[in-house]
Design a protein around this nucleic acid. Structure first.
Lengths: 206, 206, 206, 206
DNA sequence: AATGAATGAGGCTTCATTCAT
DNA sequence: CATGAATGAAGCCTCATTCAT
């Protein structure tokens, strides 16, 4: 049963030196993922870049997967923090303003570290599924809560379906704007896209 | 050495055999990707499953990447064939009917081989980027052509932007319906989602 | 369950080159065990001494244990061949002559490769238990068959117990003569020990 | 720093603590050897099981070998204590009674901790050879002394040879009874084996 | 003394690729 | 062309040991 090494950290690194080592390892992993790609991300290389020995790596992580998982986790936490803040900010806004803000923020979050984003997108199916599901669920529940609160502004509509469609749409546009259209997209275009996406979503909701 | 004149052209025979070998190799690669995952997809294993020797594999493909690329290519051709057919079918339909059909087809194509889809999604950024870009460009241009033809049904709108948003949206919904909501999504729900997505997109376009 | 690599060969090495490689690997393992000890017996070293690459080693054996097992097996076969021959030779001899021969042969077999013997003795509990049990069982059944055939020369006695005690005794004396008393035991002493052991065993049996 | 005069001598206290640590380490080593096998017996694991840090381990022992050697030593001392006591007990007994007792005790000592026995048997050639030789020599000299004292009961015989053969035999029977015949040997059988072995040895000696 | 984080040599194993047959 | 044995670089991981605190 337990043939594969787990993806959870080995120690709870309470001491200071430990903590620094753990951080260095996660940071190194993220850097290598971005700069050299997943294939090059070996435990020896991670240790080297982190400035520690392989032994230390294995003292805190059961293997490469666990490190990638930690990077994913850290990244998702970063994004979730923004999402939570945004949802709080828009809580009382009317839907048009709220949706516009959501679309903008979605694009902004995708711009935080597009390369890491892209590499992680490749790896999530493998290493971060559980984490990702929780992540997705939280996003959905926050958005749904907003819709619920503002249901008077909406036409009669199943909130779960509306949430599903809107989140998918906004995420997809943001993803494609940042990752597929590369970085050569003029700022003006982005503004237009934000407006258009907002228009579509809002038009759909009410 | 070859003193006896062959009745079936030597070349044809060997061409056929080559073709069969190549197909077997691609098929084996796809199967292993789906059934055993990318990590287990080694050239030796591919050759074994294809029923040929590793040597033969290297006679037809320069390496593992080429095989994965071939699988991606084959898969995308399969999908493109459907997309092209669909666009031809809807060419003269009014946008609502057309969009509804597009959404349905998008979901259908994602259902062709979700596991392969998922594994390839992980690998495309690495092995199939070029192919994928061509793929995306063709989809966009086909959809844009449809919009152009039916621009009288549309409000005043930048066709590139509309295409970008609509394709992103439809693709995202289809992707999430199939891959994230797993196969536990009741058929009825799918129909509703098709309707809702159609409503959003059509509402946006006109 | 299948966490540990098995100790059985991977391929049945029917082809000639394969066979040579397999032999070289087993031979190398035996040599290293004898000359450098178990601790130094690493897969890389074995491959090196065998004059092949590690890759080849793993083509035929799933790991170090399997190689040690193969050495044990080969060694036991060698000894079993002698034991079988001896039992056939003594089949019609009276017990005194027969026992004397058995004791002599036991000492001889222990002298075949004392160092290997010693190293294997360390490792048998780990890697060769199954093999060893079969080995012991065969020895017992051969000796018991002799006793059965010659039961008229024996006093009334449980043959299984007699076999157990006699085999244990002869084996122990031979083992200690060769391995513990080192090689500094004068030949004359050995002859005396053979006589004395024979006397004890024969005296016990009749 | 040490301003308060201790009521219990500082040195004693620390000596006691040291002693406890040393014992804990040896005990832990023995336990791991028995429960997890030699391969799993690492210094880190030993320290962990002993409840001390690796650093402390190295404060008391120069390395792993020393710990295994200590376990062997302790175990042999345990057995030697029994052997010495037994030889003292049988000092004045006639040989038949004495031999019977020796055989029984040999089996008993092998039963003390068969698993440890077995693991140590694997390791002794490596780590405990010196110790073992002293052990064997002492056993021989004690037994020889008994024979010398009782030589009137014996036929004319070289005492060294008699000792060698008898000790080998008794040890071998006890070893095989306990380790090879596993624990599935009915008690009745053991009694018979004790009797038979005694018969053989005594028959040989007089 | 005790601690335990850190080290890194070295063992194990896989797999893309080559090449003699 | 096909075969599959052979290769060996490169990755994974453990563990005896050290050393700063």
């Amino acid at each position: 049963m337990a043939s594969k090494p787990p993806t959870t950290p080995r120690k709870n690194a309470s001491q200071e030196r430990s903590r620094a080592t753990v951080d260095a390892l996660i940071e190194a992993t993220a850097r290598i993922l971005v700069r050299e790609g997943f294939e090059k991300t070996s435990t020896n290389r991670i240790a080297e870049v982190a400035g520690v020995s392989v032994g230390s790596l294995y003292q805190y992580f059961p293997g490469k997967e666990a490190l990638v998982a930690a990077v994913i986790h850290r990244h998702q936490e970063e994004i979730m923090a923004i999402v939570r803040t945004t949802l709080r900010e828009i809580a009382d806004m009317p839907i048009e303003k709220a949706v516009r803000r959501l679309v903008s923020v979605a694009i902004e979050t995708h711009r935080i570290n597009p390369k890491l984003q892209r590499v992680l997108a490749e790896q999530i199916p493998r290493a971060g599924k559980l984490d990702s599901e929780a992540f997705i669920r939280e996003v959905h529940s926050l958005v749904r809560a907003y819709f619920e609160k503002h249901c008077k502004e909406l036409r009669k509509i199943d909130l779960d379906i509306a949430t599903f469609i809107c989140v998918s749409t906004i995420e997809a546009v943001a993803h494609n704007v940042v990752l597929n259209q590369a970085e050569v997209l003029p700022e003006k275009m982005v503004k237009v896209l934000v407006e258009e996406t907002t228009r579509m979503v809002v038009g759909y909701l009410r």
